[in-house]
């Protein structure tokens, strides 16, 4: 009974995935024909496309952090992610492998959109599990120009959204923070790809109306049917510094268990999930 049920479920999933693919393709071909005009719907779709692909996912990431004088730092890490539900709570486990001073450091996040995230850091040299104040999500992620929010997403209810224009390629959405005290921008504008709903470019404006920060998706690849920003760049236009981010060996829907995102994995990094899997079909 159970087995039969599972088979039917799986069959249904395959069918719906196939239908979805067909729909996506036809949508893509008809792009521009049926523009969305509900900005909330656009923002919601963009949020899902950028941060909620699949039920779970894994990626190996490399960052190059370049300062205003051209000096470079590198960060390499593997990210495991699991969604409780699309658009809702998520779990992240980040395992750093390079450079040597942070090798073996792990970062565990329970993300609660609209609320403070729970964050832990494991320092292997001291065998120390440190809890980190959720505090400022708009603070540098491991020294890079990426903010925590760029990595795990900004709650879509935290801004007022306004659809500025719709071109052949993009929905251009302007966002003003509901709570302007805790953010460093006065507004930001996002160019959302009409076909994939990937945010392709985001520009942040300060109080004087000047653009001082830019986040770009420089390469988007379709992986297991999900458009994925595999190359990104964050530019600090005030200093001239920037960070490049490249993701590879990306896999979705691996069946990562929820209890993997725990103190156990901090002390004993889950090798089974961190090691590079065989290429997906």
């Amino acid at each position: 009974m159970n087995i039969k049920h599972t088979v039917i479920q799986r069959f249904n999933r395959v069918i719906s995935r196939a239908l979805l693919a067909v729909c996506t393709i036809s949508l893509g071909m008809n792009a521009g024909a049926e523009d969305l005009d509900d900005v909330d719907q656009i923002v919601q779709k963009a949020n899902l496309a950028a941060f909620y692909s699949g039920v779970d996912g894994r990626a190996e990431t490399r960052m190059q952090i370049v300062d205003e004088q051209g000096r470079k730092q590198t960060r390499q890490f593997t990210i495991l992610r699991r969604d409780h539900r699309d658009g809702g709570d998520q779990q992240y486990l980040v395992f750093f492998s390079y450079p040597a001073d942070i090798r073996g450091t792990l970062f565990l996040v329970e993300k609660h959109p609209g609320n403070d995230d729970d964050r832990w850091l494991y320092l292997p040299g001291l065998d120390l599990v440190k809890r980190i104040a959720a505090g400022d999500k708009r603070t540098s992620f491991v020294g890079s120009d990426f903010f925590y929010e760029d990595v795990s997403g900004r709650g879509i209810t935290e801004d007022h959204h306004h659809l500025v224009s719709t071109s052949d390629q993009f929905y251009v959405v302007q966002n003003r923070p509901k709570d302007s005290i805790n953010v460093e921008f006065s507004e930001y504008t996002v160019w959302i790809d009409k076909q994939t709903f990937m945010p392709m470019k985001t520009e942040y404006t300060d109080n004087s109306g000047k653009i001082y920060r830019r986040v770009e998706a420089l390469q988007v690849q379709i992986i297991q049917g999900f458009p994925t920003a595999t190359r990104m760049k964050v530019s600090n236009l005030r200093t001239g510094g920037y960070t490049l981010n490249e993701m590879r060996f990306i896999h979705y829907d691996m069946g990562i268990p929820a209890d993997l995102f725990s103190e156990r994995s901090l002390r004993n990094p889950p090798r089974q999930w961190l090691k590079r899997p065989k290429p997906a079909n």
Partner: peptide, 13 residues
């Protein structure tokens, strides 16, 4: 990384 200095918008990258 052959870091690009180009601030090209995403559509031309």
């Amino acid at each position: 990384w052959s870091a690009t200095e180009s601030h090209a918008p995403s559509d031309t990258a």
